[in-house]
């Protein structure tokens, strides 16, 4: 297996003494679509900052496609395309100039850069806006422009730091499709996001980082397999004033018509509906209270927090 990314014992301490990374070990295989999740301040952006050389590591080893950050940083940089969290392009330049300039930094001649820029601007629906100053673009367009910029030099590893933050649902889904296609064409993708549904939809493998440590690193399927219970919301046909007695299913009324029920995986839903039916309660619809991954994420982070406090 060729590794796109190998991180060993990565540590970062800032001048004020804050230890952002406490010995992170991480491997991402070539061709993977990998999610790096964690709460705010967990160390995701610091890790990405070190990979892209915007943050200087305190110790540890980083390799991208075998190129070492310490001994071969230029080759490492050539392999990476970075889509940062914040807009970081020149607000006064046009979309097309931003792309061709970026290509020039990677040694791509202007003539070739123009062809590549046209291709990407068309793919990402920005061709009509190519001569517009980037500050005039909408938030979603700016996000797409950053993706196009990161792809100008055809990187083997694309790192996206919350690429869909502030993007509407329709656009987010079209970006998912684009990223999936890109991954299918062979680009390894590492994604950080706060939308856990996004990670569940797109990623095959996942690492969860908290307080500068990796608390989970496994496949998405294995992680979701750990889920022992799910919380469902039931919309009831008729109003209820008291919580119905449901054996084996802890329940509470959120309002007169909404019942929240915890269902352990081995129990299933059939018995729940039998009990409700026996009590004459009709259910109009059923939905997950939260995303499955979100429940796991919260439980893992909480477990880590209680471990810290202990």
């Amino acid at each position: 297996m060729t590794l796109a990314l190998s991180i060993k014992q990565l540590r970062k301490s800032y001048a004020n003494g804050f230890e952002a990374l406490k010995g992170v070990d991480l491997e991402v295989a070539e061709g993977d679509f990998f999610a790096l999740l964690g709460p705010n301040g967990a160390g995701k952006s610091t890790t990405i900052g070190i990979l892209s050389t915007l943050v200087t590591k305190s110790s540890g080893r980083v390799q991208v496609f075998g190129h070492d950050l310490d001994t071969d940083p230029l080759a490492l940089k050539r392999c990476i395309g970075l889509v940062p969290q914040e807009f970081n392009f020149n607000q006064f330049e046009t979309a097309q100039n931003i792309l061709t300039t970026q290509a020039g930094y990677y040694g791509i001649k202007l003539k070739d850069a123009r062809v590549r820029a046209e291709e990407l601007l068309k793919q990402l629906g920005l061709w009509d806006k190519r001569d517009v100053a980037s500050r005039m673009l909408s938030g979603g367009m700016k996000r797409r422009l950053m993706i196009a910029r990161a792809l100008m030099h055809r990187p083997r590893l694309l790192i996206l730091d919350e690429p869909t933050a502030g993007v509407d649902i329709e656009l987010r889904r079209s970006m998912w499709e684009y990223l999936t296609e890109l991954n299918e064409q062979g680009t390894t993708i590492i994604l950080t996001t706060h939308y856990l549904e996004e990670a569940e939809q797109l990623c095959r493998n996942i690492a969860i980082i908290d307080h500068g440590c990796i608390v989970e690193n496994t496949s998405m399927r294995a992680l979701l397999g750990q889920l022992s219970k799910e919380t469902f919301l039931l919309d009831l046909k008729e109003t209820q004033s008291v919580v119905p007695e449901l054996e084996g299913y802890p329940a509470q009324l959120l309002d007169e018509c909404t019942l929240q029920v915890q269902v352990e995986k081995h129990r299933g839903l059939t018995d729940l509906f039998t009990q409700l039916s026996a009590q004459g309660i009709e259910v109009l619809s059923l939905r997950n209270k939260s995303n499955r991954l979100e429940e796991l994420f919260v439980s893992l982070v909480e477990k880590n927090l209680s471990g810290d406090q202990a």
Binding site: K77, R78, L82, N88, Q91, Y105, Y106
Partner: peptide, 16 residues
């Protein structure tokens, strides 16, 4: 200005 707008990062992450 490049520092202020963070567009200097475009150069810092590139192999220049």
């Amino acid at each position: 200005s490049a520092k202020f707008q963070h567009s200097i990062e475009e150069l810092m992450v590139s192999p220049v």
